[in-house]
């Protein structure tokens, strides 16, 4: 079964296309890296797939459910770490996780127990009683990941999970995600700019450019003609003239 299937998914902002007729097929159990330059339409696609944005045209099926027809059923099955995160800054970390779990249908005791486990696993136990507003950016990212996982989703959406966090935190998150996918616990759909990290994580890659899917396949297929970075640059690269030198910043000679 396909975890994500879209047909002609389109979104316009003020008449300008952000995503144009996107046909996406993500197999269940895949670790799908959705790549593209800034403004290519990655976050817009993810927002449409998680129900934050309504498409201008087209349809999406998530884990067999039509997103437009049954959004609540879809939301029960997915977890999401959106760009900008979805955290209530005035709750403590422990409250945030537990309440998030309860919002997804867990009873209070189960949600509290899972929250404790996640806080330990995400190395946030010592800050469990602090309000989220006092967390660092990396801690917030880890907490947001915990929120997305607490109800045991079948499909996880991650928008730029490695942006703005240190190498140590990247390593921890990467290890957790690899374990989850390896145990076939869930499907991951991830956007990122960090190609090196993506290359070490994903099983499938899709590249979007100017709102259109320009490349799609397994990592092996995509890398057949070079590294992921080379393939990416070929897929989205355009001939650009060498930038002119800035007149007020003359080069200094030694």
């Amino acid at each position: 079964m396909l975890a994500i299937e879209t047909e002609g998914l389109t979104r316009h902002f003020d008449g300008k296309p952000a995503v144009e007729r996107l046909d996406l097929r993500v197999p269940e159990g895949a670790f799908y890296g959705f790549l593209g330059p800034n403004g290519a339409g990655k976050s817009t696609t993810m927002k449409m797939l998680t129900g934050l944005l309504a498409p201008t045209a087209g349809r999406a099926r998530i884990l067999g459910h039509d997103l437009a027809a049954d959004p609540v059923a879809v939301k029960r099955l997915i977890g999401s770490v959106p760009d900008g995160l979805a955290l209530f800054e005035r709750l403590t970390g422990a409250e945030q996780l537990r309440i998030q779990g309860q919002l997804y249908g867990l009873d209070r005791a189960t949600a509290a127990r899972r929250a404790g486990e996640l806080l330990e696993r995400l190395d946030l136990a010592s800050a469990a009683g602090d309000t989220v507003a006092d967390y660092s950016h990396g801690m917030k990212k880890r907490l947001a990941l915990g929120c997305a996982l607490i109800h045991g989703p079948q499909l996880l959406f991650l928008d730029e999970p490695f942006e703005g966090i240190d190498a140590l935190a990247v390593g921890g998150i990467r290890q957790l995600l690899q374990e989850l996918v390896a145990s076939r616990a869930l499907t991951v759909f991830l956007t990122s700019h960090v190609l090196e990290v993506v290359e070490r994580l994903v099983s499938h890659v899709g590249i979007i450019h100017r709102g259109r899917l320009v490349l799609d396949g397994t990592l092996a297929e995509v890398r057949a003609s070079g590294s992921l970075e080379e393939t990416f640059l070929r897929a989205v690269g355009e001939e650009r003239a060498a930038p002119a030198a800035l007149s007020w910043l003359p080069g200094r000679t030694a």
Partner: peptide, 16 residues
């Protein structure tokens, strides 16, 4: 007004 980024959670979660 005070929900900030948390407002996204209200639309991501399966709640009416």
């Amino acid at each position: 007004g005070w929900d900030g980024g948390g407002a996204r959670a209200l639309f991501l979660a399966p709640v009416a």
